[in-house]
Design a protein around this nucleic acid. Structure first.
Lengths: 183, 183
DNA sequence: TTAAACTTTCAGTAATTTCTGAAACTTCAG
DNA sequence: CTGAAGTTTCAGAAATTACTGAAAGTTTAA
């Protein structure tokens, strides 16, 4: 499996970005390769294409599976496993988003809840707790909201996005239309 | 400046999370400390409270300023600089969001645009370009959308969030109300 | 059961990132 | 000017993270 220059550029770039997206360079490269290659790929092919060890490849595949970004694809008559993307680009983007929320927000929410339970030992600490509470509420809103958006599904989400600046106007309309639900 | 146990827990946690949020441990700790401490803090106080070197502190402050998360606060009669948060929790969260978009999405958008310009050297590459195009469009939507949301400002954003699942219904209403803008 | 084909694990090494502390720099009062 | 009070820079050390490759593990066909 030899990568065309086009694929190579893309794969290299996704490698560099990988670390910013929550996984490391090689995992990023592997994901790009699997997504861009329409044929299912075997672990050894991936290792060869990217010039990385078989062991590292195995760990990377495990990680991508734990993120639910790729899945195994069994080819009848073949002993080895092949790998393909776990869904459309939209699905993959959602998974990344979701997984990052779990890693980046949830633990903090949980800590903040704990810290807010403790009764303050000083005037100072009372103020600190108020601040922490503010952060907590913000993170909770973000979490709830992002889950809402995901529940809408890609189609409605696209509608909402295309609406763009129109959202503001809709919000104003809304108040007149659903007076019971003032917010 | 001695941190209370409450502040210590929070600061330590934000340090751990820091790396997931795009900066490193000490920078995360510094941010937490500055946000939770209502008095302006001097560099030396921060270094002492966190037991880190003065040099590292200086670099961290520089980074937090480049993210626009803290700003200098000059106290008349004092030679040294003090630091305070650059705004409310909401503002800070927006800044982090914005900055991460710049680092995590923009470079990829730019590369994808370049790769799509090149005329494909093969059938294969044509397909790859189509995939890349799909990714490009998705990232562009996300970017546009997140900018829209930020332009709404915290108040309307809160309204939208409280709306929660109601968003779906509003979308349906919308089609009947603004028939010109089908999406 | 055996052995071939393949995968996973993990101890040690390599690469990368972060941190320190000393030196260089800046600013200001006298 | 001079020096005190402060800040920044950056080379090298320390800490962290990623990678390799050999050994152990698994699965299947015969």
């Amino acid at each position: 499996m030899k990568m065309s220059p086009l694929v190579t550029s893309a794969v290299m770039h996704f490698g560099e970005m990988g670390s910013r997206w929550g996984f490391n360079r090689t995992v990023g490269q592997m994901l790009a390769l699997i997504v861009l290659h329409e044929e299912p790929l075997a672990a050894q092919e991936i290792a060869d294409a990217l010039s990385i060890s078989r062991g590292n490849t195995s760990m990377g595949l495990k990680e991508l599976q734990s993120w639910q970004l790729i899945k195994q694809h069994h080819v009848p008559g073949e002993r080895k496993e092949f790998y393909i993307p776990a869904g459309s680009i939209w699905v993959l983007a959602n998974r990344v988003f979701e997984e990052r929320r779990k890693r980046e927000i949830d633990p903090t929410l949980s800590l903040l809840r704990d810290l807010m339970m403790e009764s303050p030992n000083s005037e100072q600490d009372s103020n600190v707790q108020a601040r922490l509470n503010e952060i907590h509420d913000l993170l909770e809103s973000v979490t709830a909201w992002s889950q809402e958006l995901q529940n809408l599904g890609p189609d409605k989400l696209a509608t909402l996005m295309k609406l763009g600046a129109g959202v503001g106007r809709i919000l104003e309309l809304k108040d007149k239309l659903l007076p019971g639900k003032s917010a």
